[in-house]
């Protein structure tokens, strides 16, 4: 059971207030019309799915309803930190391995 800190509400809440929304930091191709089928397929479906450090998109579904990132470990289930969407990755490497 996760206890998650919502960086927007600045509150520590239980897992069932939140909803995971898949891998974070996936960039939509800049020019969809110039994108090959392979690139588009990779953008839509292919994921890193690591065993270990993972940055995942979550929504505070029954709270502020805003999306944010969680940096956590998929093996130990440790949460390193949470940060807002407009925060760069580099600013959020504290609290655990990168």
């Amino acid at each position: 059971m996760f206890l998650i800190h919502c960086p927007n509400c600045n509150e520590q809440r239980s897992e069932d207030e939140f909803h995971p929304a898949g891998e974070g930091h996936i960039k939509r191709p800049d020019e969809p019309n110039a994108t090959s089928d392979k690139e588009w397929g990779e953008y839509l479906f292919f994921r890193n799915n690591p065993r270990g450090i993972y940055r995942e998109l979550w929504q505070h579904t029954v709270g502020c309803r805003k999306y944010f990132y969680i940096k956590r470990n998929t093996e130990t289930y440790e949460i390193y930190n949470t940060y807002l969407l407009n925060d760069a990755i580099e600013n959020n490497d504290s609290g655990g391995p990168i």
Binding site: E23, E42, F46, N48, P50, R51
Partner: peptide
């Protein structure tokens, strides 16, 4: 563990565990 083993071979899969 498919994604982990695929990563050893250098490619990604459309899979989430």
């Amino acid at each position: 563990n498919s994604s982990v083993v695929a990563a050893m071979a250098g490619f990604k899969l459309p899979i989430e565990s």
